[in-house]
């Protein structure tokens, strides 16, 4: 399990996305409203993926009769 996914599992999605911004960035490229919106939405999805994956692995292991290892549970889930 990566540190990111550990931390992501420990925090609800609301905490991940609602830390206030302090000021505008200094970038010269247009990030695009749609891209910002997608980024924000993905954070929630990624969290859901990380949270669900160990349960999915255990369910799969139960159904297939194979043992679910902690290492397998700890793998990142985002791809």
């Amino acid at each position: 399990m990566t540190r990111n996914s550990l931390a992501a599992r420990a925090l609800p999605p609301a905490v991940l996305v609602q830390i206030p911004a302090t000021s505008k960035a200094n970038a010269h490229i247009d990030p695009g409203s749609g891209s910002f919106f997608v980024q924000m939405s993905l954070v929630g999805l990624l969290y859901a993926g990380v949270a669900i994956k160990p349960y999915w692995r255990r369910t799969k292991a139960f159904l297939t009769g194979r043992r679910s290892t902690p290492e397998a549970d700890d793998e990142s889930s985002d791809s």
């Binding site: 990111n4 996914s5 931390a7 992501a8 925090l11 905490v15 991940l16 996305v17 609602q18 830390i19 206030p20 911004a21 505008k24 990030p31 695009g32 409203s33 749609g34 891209s35 910002f36 919106f37 997608v38 980024q39 924000m40 939405s41 993905l42 954070v43 990624l46 969290y47 990380v50 985002d78």
Partner: peptide, 25 residues
């Protein structure tokens, strides 16, 4: 998402993502 939000008047600065979430991304 880009095409749906192309005409959005929402201020981009209102979108907020934590550092932790950014690392996840």
């Amino acid at each position: 998402g880009q095409s749906k939000m192309a005409h959005s008047k929402r201020d981009a600065a209102s979108y907020k993502v934590s550092a932790l979430a950014l690392n996840g991304l």
